[in-house]
Design a protein around this nucleic acid. Structure first.
Ligand SMILES: [Mn+2]
Ligand SMILES: [Mn+2]
Ligand SMILES: [Zn+2]
Ligand SMILES: [Zn+2]
Lengths: 173, 173
DNA sequence: ATATTATTGAGAATGATACTCAATTACATC
DNA sequence: GATGTAATTGAGTATCATTCTCAATAATAT
């Protein structure tokens, strides 16, 4: 499978990879799809359908929103992008092809997104999947909370290195 | 803070907790809110706004959808429910008050959701937050893939206990 | 009982995404 | 290069979850 992404000893570019994927599926490599893949590689970390649309306009391309929405599943299926977060009713995507996997810290006050990678998460995924006889295609660890700036701004104290106090309590219903 | 959830040595019920929360905020405990909280405690694991609506109808209550949508943020703020997953454009919630935290395995073929708890995830969260000076309010680990039944059905092989083969490849753009 | 606000339901509005369909185009084959 | 066929496109429309508006009503404090 991974061989399809390689030609010679070199990983295909986003565009080549997409072309190859389309051919595999007997789909056509149209100017619109070409322009969309060109837009995708220019976008910042996290983007939505509208961002693709705006980038296309910057490129003087008139691809319609309908076509963008139709193309997104192809980009996902071809392993170029992934759906990462839902933010204010919008789906955010990001490029994953030839990128290191990572997870996210999201500030619930200012919306800032911090990316991190932690190899332990991958090990845990394997362990959990083994336990539940599950075959994982992806995982997402999202941690919500307050970034440093917002902690200061809102006067939230950081308990990171302290013990948590736990207690036994009964429940009445 | 946690003291507010306790009276005597007993954890408040969902209803009492909600009443208390509303009072704290100078909000009113209306029949509609009473009926909604009564519906919530009867709902299964994961539910959406429409499920609350249907449960209310079962209870012969005529609370409107608008009121349900208005009440959901209150239920979240009071720590009774949490937004867990986005499924087919719907937001799914679940009760968390006096429940053990857990994460989810979601089958991308049949939609089945398996819940699991893994203490390591919590430790990782602490570690990551310390590193990024982040104060977490919650985390969600979602693993997508194929459940056992769907693996069999689709003839997907389970590599869980095998080594992954990695290779070094160059990238051309 | 009164005053003050919060709350409600109905319906309209919003907004992201999906669908419809006729016109166009890519590409394999000749 | 012309032809046939199935895929693709844009424009507009539809969908559908969620939010908003507003006038009528109701919950609490005094
Ligand atoms: Mn990211
Ligand atoms: Mn759950
Ligand atoms: Zn922040
Ligand atoms: Zn399944």
């Amino acid at each position: 499978m991974i061989l399809n992404y390689i030609r010679g000893n070199v990983l295909l570019s986003y565009k080549e990879r997409f072309k190859y994927f389309l051919k595999e599926r007997n789909l056509k490599y149209t100017p619109e799809r070409k322009e969309i893949i060109e837009a995708i590689v220019k976008l910042q970390k996290h983007f939505d359908a509208e961002d693709i649309y705006k980038q296309l306009r910057k490129q003087k391309s008139n691809v319609s929103l309908a076509t963008i929405y139709r193309t997104i599943p192809l980009l996902i299926d071809s392993g170029l992008i992934i759906e990462t977060l839902h933010c204010r009713d919008k789906v955010l995507y990001e490029r994953i092809y030839n990128k290191k996997h990572h997870d996210h810290l999201v500030c619930i006050n200012c919306g800032k997104i911090i990316e991190f990678y932690n190899g332990e998460v991958e090990k845990l995924q394997d362990e959990i999947c083994r336990k539940y006889q599950f075959v994982a295609t992806e995982h997402r660890l999202g941690i919500k909370g307050y970034c440093k700036e917002c902690q200061d701004k809102l006067n939230i104290k950081n308990n990171n290195s302290k013990e948590k106090n736990k207690r036994d309590i009964k429940h009445d219903s």
